[in-house]
């Protein structure tokens, strides 16, 4: 796995965070995971504002794992802001959610999410999904050229 790219995990549920990190670690893709716990923090990280104002601008997430139901700014709003700014428009975003609602799915794709994964109750399935998505976005996918 490449070490120079980070995964931004936007997740407010500490259990889901621990389990996602464990799944990533189990498949040796835990290095460079940045965790933020609400939508406002995610925007601060991505746009280098607030607590993240001093972030190294060359550190760009290879992929954002975005939960939809978040405190302060919800996931769809984070996605909308990401997609409407030239600096972040091309960052791959994988929506992770427990919701099976069709409206969430269609709205996510309408906002150009790259992928939509429903967190299954069966964690083994989720771990497998995390493994595949780590493999795909960190190894197989050619990242968009940053200007």
């Amino acid at each position: 796995m490449k070490d120079d790219r980070v995964i931004l995990l936007v997740e407010d549920n500490p259990d889901d965070e621990a389990l996602t990190l464990r799944a990533l670690k189990k498949h040796n893709i835990a290095n460079g995971v940045v965790v933020v716990r609400d939508g406002a923090q995610a925007l601060d990280y991505l746009f280098r504002t607030g607590a993240w104002a001093g972030r190294d601008p060359t550190e760009r997430p290879a992929v954002v794992l975005l939960d939809l139901r978040l405190p302060k700014v919800d996931g769809l709003e984070v996605l909308r802001r990401l997609r409407s700014d030239d600096r972040t428009r091309v960052i791959p975003v994988v929506v992770l959610t427990s919701s099976k609602e069709e409206s969430d799915l269609s709205q996510s794709y309408a906002l150009h999410a790259n992928s939509y994964i429903r967190k299954p109750v069966d964690f083994a399935q989720f771990a497998e999904a995390v493994r595949q998505l780590g493999l795909y976005w960190l190894v197989l996918n050619e990242p968009p050229p940053y200007s």
């Binding site: 549920n13 889901d16 389990l19 139901r69 959610t97 919701s99």
Partner: peptide, 19 residues
């Protein structure tokens, strides 16, 4: 919506940590 989202989250934790 809330059932679909919120009731599943603790189940995932129970299953995930059991696993």
């Amino acid at each position: 919506y809330s059932v679909s989202h919120d009731l599943r989250a603790p189940l995932r934790a129970i299953d995930g940590f059991s696993l």
